[in-house]
Design a protein around this nucleic acid. Structure first.
Length: 442
RNA sequence: GGAGGCGUGGCCGAGCGGCUUAAGGCAGCAGUUUGCUAAACUGCGGGGGCCUAAAAAGCCCCACACAGGUUCGAAUCCUGUCGCCUCCGCCA
């Protein structure tokens, strides 16, 4: 939720942000309703003050004098009750609309209406040159017996997969690799330095978070909007949702907490399964594991002051680039346009990996600057060094989405004989000492 | 799944129908003092509203897990929900 004060202090900022996103919403109507809410609130407070005075009076009196005050107090209480009911209706209406308002866009977000308006800001890495026609990961995965979607369909349905053999080993190597980087202060410092981003090299805390979340907390994370609901798995027996990302439970960790400024930035790296119904994406990536109902992902989340949050996002992008460069996978960095951006985001940057088998870039990473949008409802706040309290700023970003990273590895590291070599940086983290995946002889 | 106990500010902890305007302590921040640090003393500490150009000050409302209820009046009594703890059962 955005700062409701903005309605009265800077409504133009809200309108501009809505225009850029192509969202129709009558802000002036909302302002009128909120003004009405404020005056009604004031009225209720005056009545309550009068009622409190009466009660105090009663406490000090005895006998008939006391009895004389009780009835007026009862009557006043009734009037207050009526006004409060009226106020509640108005408050619900106003917050209902406020919740629909997306975050205020950062100044450098490209304005556009769709994905087509996203801006590629750089392409990095050498695309591999093949002397043969590169295969896509589905063909490679089947031939090497790494990805089995057929049996998964039999057992769990469409859009599931078994990761087998070396694919399973690579998953855990990716996890170990990224944990080793993100918990190493020296590594973080040199990465921040290399891109000239001024952030403290504070290590990430590794976390394995819950993958189920309560509905009210999910709403506070701004991840259970009417549009989101279709995308979520819900467990009615326990009134819980399955998370679509570790972000959902990592970001909510400091619900109702006041963090000390000296503890910031608070950085977490979480590994978890992610569950997505993929409603509305029928026909898109129906084969393979590009788009599945369940995948594992390593996610970064951080809490900072408002001054630090933009640098933090740039740092997260630098980390993502470092990770992809370490795997020697070519990628490009894309500024997401206003029309393609998530509602809680102020600024979104994606990484897309080069997939030679598909001859295109595909999204593997995203970095979201949420500013105080989630923190406002989560009540995640910061006690500044001067003692004042304000909302935290939050960032979240992908470290590795395992499935898609595996796809990029297979397609980029394939050889003419159908084998796939394993990125050198991952090899020390493999549970089994191998450097190449060979086709199995059947 | 069953039985019982407990949820008070950043933390600890008193209060168990109206002298609570949430005592007291710790931590934090600001100020005074100080050559510096420490100590001592004073003040501040959540959300909202009125006032203000904005702030400060002042005044008011709300906040004792959450939501209702009883009462002129609720941290205190009642109901429900959630969370935590202990025991029994089940279990990786």
């Amino acid at each position: 939720m955005i700062d409701p004060q903005l309605l009265h202090e800077n409504p133009e900022l809200i309108k501009e942000s809505l225009r850029a996103r192509g969202i129709e919403l009558d802000v002036d109507h909302l302002i009128r309703r909120d003004t009405k809410r404020k005056s009604l609130l004031h009225e209720v407070e005056e009545l309550r003050a009068a009622h409190n005075k009466l009660s105090d009076g009663i406490a000090k009196l005895e006998g008939a004098e006391r009895e004389d005050l009780i009835q007026p107090s009862k009557d006043l209480k009734e009037t207050i009750g009526e006004k409060e009911a009226e106020l509640k209706v108005l408050e619900d209406e106003v917050t209902g609309i406020l919740m629909l308002l997306p975050n205020i866009l950062a100044p450098d977000v490209p304005v556009g209406t769709s994905e087509a308006d996203n801006v590629v800001i750089r392409e990095v890495g050498q695309k591999p040159q093949f002397t043969f026609t590169p295969k896509d990961y589905i063909v490679l995965g089947a031939a090497l017996n790494l990805i089995d979607t057929e049996r998964a369909a039999k057992v769990a349905g469409a859009r599931f997969g078994y990761l087998r053999g070396e694919a399973a080993l690579i998953e855990f190597a990716l996890v170990q690799f990224v944990f080793s980087v993100l918990t190493d202060a020296d590594a973080l410092q040199s990465i921040a330095k290399s891109v000239n981003v001024a952030v403290p090299p504070k290590p990430f805390v590794p976390v394995v978070p819950p993958v189920m979340i309560k509905p009210d907390v999910f709403e506070k994370m701004a991840r259970l909007s009417a549009a989101d609901k279709d995308e979520r798995y819900y467990l009615p027996q326990d009134n819980l949702y399955l998370v679509g990302s570790a972000e959902h439970t990592l970001g909510a960790m400091h619900l109702d907490e006041i963090l000390a400024e000296s503890d910031l930035p608070l950085r977490y790296v979480g590994f978890s399964a992610s569950f997505r119904r993929e409603a509305g994406s029928y026909g898109k990536d129906t084969r393979g594991i590009m788009r599945v109902h369940q995948f594992d992902k390593v996610e970064m989340e951080s809490f900072t002051t408002k001054e630090q949050s933009l640098a933090e996002q740039n740092f997260f992008v630098a980390l993502q680039e470092y990770l992809m460069a370490s795997l020697k996978i070519p990628y490009r960095v894309v500024m997401i346009s206003s029309g393609d951006m998530g509602l809680p985001d102020a600024r979104q940057i994606d990484l897309e990996a080069w997939m030679p088998g598909q001859n295109m870039y595909r999204e593997t990473h995203t970095a979201d600057l949420m500013t105080d949008y989630q923190a406002r409802r989560l009540k995640t706040r910061i006690r500044r060094k001067n003692g004042s309290i304000e909302l935290a700023h939050m960032n979240d970003a992908t470290a590795f989405a395992i499935g898609r990273t595996l796809i990029a590895i297979l397609e980029n590291y394939q050889a003419a004989d159908g084998s796939v070599s394993i990125p050198a940086v991952l090899q020390p983290f493999l549970a089994k000492k191998i450097s190449r995946i060979e086709p199995t002889v059947k």
